[in-house]
Amino acid sequence: MVYTGVANLLVGTLLAMLLVREFAASGFVSRSRLGFRSIGRTVVAVLIGGGLGFALFALQQPPTTDPVVVANVFAQVLPVSIAEIVICWVVVGGSLEALLRHRGLNRYLATGSALVVSSVLFGVYHFAHSPPFNTVEMVVLLTVVGVGTGLIYFVGRSFYGALAFHNFMALIGVVSSLEEDGQIGSYQQPLPPLLATALVAVLVMVGIERLFVRDTYEEEPGDHRV
């Protein structure tokens, strides 16, 4: 709980989003290019990203698909996923793409470069995790997963769509790890602390981006400015 509160909510979400706020307020990059879209587009993106993520989760035949276990683990990893998307894709990927566009690089090359850097960063940072997520094989695998998340983020331009997909991808490793450690049984009933922490993380994220991340101009439909 301390790690979740300090590392993910404070550093990975609050402080990182303050930087995102400056990106948008300065006109460096618009909030829509950073994946923060209208409510309607966000709902559609979440349904698509979440549906695709769940399908891939189910196809890999996880140790359990018990709805209670899945809900608990989904809630457990959600604050971490929010921080990962904000730092790797919004702050690093979004700013790199905008910088390359400002320097005159072709839009597709700029986006592709940002996608690669974000995905590699996501994979490499797992060396700081505990086993089994800090091995070379796992880092390579997670980099590939990062490419999938990045495609949804950069192509769909939706933070929340990428988050829904990414969190389901995280379930696969965590559920398997719990099964191997014999801890899956403790997740077979609702765990209020996990659910409450996830809810707080979502409310903090939505509150910051809706209330404080503002463009210096009102972007019109079809506007392709950086």
Rank of each mutant, 00 (worst) to 15 (best):
G35A: 13
F36W: 12
F36Y: 11
R37T: 14
G40K: 04
R41G: 15
T42Y: 05
V43N: 05
V43F: 13
V43D: 06
V44Y: 01
V44D: 00
V46G: 08
G49A: 11
G50K: 04
G51Y: 09
L52T: 14
L52H: 06
G53C: 10
G53Y: 08
A55N: 02
L56Y: 10
F57A: 03
F57G: 09
A58T: 09
A58Y: 14
Q60P: 00
Q61H: 13
P62M: 09
P62A: 09
P62H: 06
P63L: 12
T65H: 06
T65D: 12
D66I: 02
D66K: 05
P67M: 02
V68L: 01
V68E: 00
V68D: 01
V70P: 05
A71F: 10
N72I: 07
N72M: 09
V73S: 10
F74A: 10
F74Q: 03
A75L: 06
Q76C: 03
V77H: 04
V77I: 15
V77T: 14
L78F: 14
L78D: 03
V80R: 08
V80Q: 15
S81A: 15
S81W: 07
I82W: 00
A83T: 11
A83I: 03
E84N: 06
I85S: 03
V86Y: 03
I87M: 12
C88T: 13
V90T: 15
V90G: 07
V91C: 09
G93H: 09
G93Y: 11
G94V: 06
S95N: 07
S95G: 10
L96Q: 10
L99F: 14
R101S: 12
R103T: 04
G104S: 08
L105C: 03
N106G: 09
L109A: 14
L109M: 10
T111I: 05
S113W: 01
V117N: 07
V117G: 10
S119F: 10
S119K: 01
S119L: 11
V120F: 05
V120W: 00
L121Y: 05
F122K: 02
V124S: 02
Y125R: 10
H126T: 10
F127H: 03
F127G: 04
S130M: 07
S130R: 09
S130E: 12
F133Y: 15
F133T: 05
F133K: 09
N134Y: 07
N134R: 04
N134T: 02
T135Q: 03
V136H: 01
E137Y: 02
M138H: 14
M138L: 05
M138S: 15
M138W: 13
V139P: 06
V140P: 04
L141T: 13
L142E: 11
L142W: 00
V145H: 09
V147I: 15
T149M: 11
T149K: 00
G150D: 01
L151C: 09
L151Q: 00
I152S: 00
F154D: 01
V155M: 03
G156E: 06
R157G: 05
R157C: 01
R157K: 15
S158A: 07
S158Q: 03
Y160D: 04
Y160W: 15
G161V: 11
G161E: 10
A162K: 02
A162T: 06
A162P: 01
A164P: 06
F165V: 11
N167E: 08
